[in-house]
């Protein structure tokens, strides 16, 4: 096992601190925000080069900003990098949210699976069969459950337009509360408040397999035409998906729990992979602010890719040349990632 050069990087660099440099650091942050825009907008190579250069400038300078915090003893020094990156990422997301709500048009690529949602609902209505929605096993303290609730809201709006029954068994009582609020709201906004059945959204049991056993029971007895599994899933993913498959339901799944993705991919018709689950509600709602935030996420990926490339290139250069100055430079660049 060899050691990566990154493991040698000290946390925080020694600094001489001055107010002027702190001001410069703030200026650098705003430069970086512009760099992020440049990176993700339909751009030319020149703009990309400018962006990377600006980011590097930022990296060289922003330890100063961090130092300004630590000198007064307010900031947890181990987390300065996270703070700086957090500001950059959230800044990028907010920026696009603002731009999008100001009316800037945003493109979003197709997400396979979501296209078929309406078709699945239509089929259920035709066959006179219910639709099953499983919001995963996690409680409301997981962000993917919240994402799932958003999707449930969109789905319920579509379902309200047809005349199908929506069945939502849940494992956590908090999720039940939220699901009821969400679905009721959707039916209301679709002008079908009478179609809302509170008892169709119900708590089963907190125990994972008691829940799986009960949902399996629902699947084989009610024979839903479409099954949605969206949220945080564990081992029961395949129990549910295989049972759903055995009755011939259209199945659309999505989770941000990587271990369960292979089973959904194998047993379902469509699977939203990881981040696609979070992107789905923006995709379905087409709400500008949601799309803007999605664009901000892309900026984050852009930053990750740029740094992975830069970091690997510098590490490679260092390995090949063994030069001290390359090492010193790469330490500055890699400081942001500890």
């Amino acid at each position: 096992m060899h050691l990566c050069p990154t493991t040698r990087i000290p946390r925080g660099l020694p600094q001489t601190i001055g107010l002027a440099r702190a001001v410069f650091a703030i200026a650098a942050i705003s430069t970086s925000a512009r760099a992020v825009i440049a990176l993700t907008a339909p751009s030319t190579w020149a703009r990309a080069v400018f962006a990377i250069a600006a980011l590097f400038t930022l990296l060289q300078v922003d330890p100063v900003l961090a130092q300004a915090g630590t000198e007064t003893g307010w900031i947890n020094t181990d987390r300065t990098q996270a703070l700086v990156l957090g500001i950059i990422l959230t800044g990028a997301i907010l920026l696009y949210v603002v731009l999008a709500s100001a009316g800037r048009p945003l493109f979003i690529r197709k997400i396979a699976g979501l296209e078929t949602v309406e078709e699945a609902v239509g089929r259920a209505t035709e066959m006179g069969k219910p639709i099953l929605y499983v919001p995963g096993l996690n409680d409301m303290d997981e962000v993917q459950t919240i994402a799932s609730m958003n999707l449930l809201g969109h789905l319920a709006t579509i379902i309200a337009g047809y005349d199908s029954r929506l069945h939502v068994p849940v494992r956590k009582s908090l999720v039940m509360s939220v699901a009821r609020e969400t679905v009721q709201q959707s039916y209301l906004s679709a002008g079908r408040p009478d179609a809302y059945q509170e008892d169709d959204i119900h708590y089963v049991s907190d125990a994972q397999f008691a829940y799986a056993a009960a949902v399996d029971g629902i699947i084989v007895r009610e024979k839903p035409a479409a099954c949605f599994y969206l949220g945080g899933f564990y081992a029961e993913s395949l129990i549910l998906a295989e049972t759903g498959n055995s009755i011939g339901a259209i199945q659309i799944a999505g989770t941000a729990r990587p271990p369960q993705l292979p089973f959904f991919v194998a047993a379902c018709d469509y699977t939203l992979i990881g981040e696609e689950l979070f992107a789905a509600s923006a995709y379905l709602s087409k709400e500008p602010r949601m799309l803007g935030s999605l664009k901000g996420q892309d900026a984050g990926k852009g930053i990750a890719i740029v740094f992975i490339l830069a970091g690997s290139a510098l590490a490679t250069l260092e390995t090949v040349t063994g030069s001290e100055s390359v090492r010193a430079f790469s330490e500055i660049v890699l400081w942001l990632f500890r």
Binding site: A82, L85, L89, I308, G311, A313, F337
Partner: peptide, 24 residues
């Protein structure tokens, strides 16, 4: 979750990928 995912699943994962492309 915001700072936790930022730290462990973004920063550290990116950092662990900054490895040399040649090993001697």
């Amino acid at each position: 979750n915001l700072p936790r995912f930022l730290d462990s699943d973004f920063i550290i994962q990116v950092q662990s990928t900054m490895i040399p492309l040649v090993v001697l």
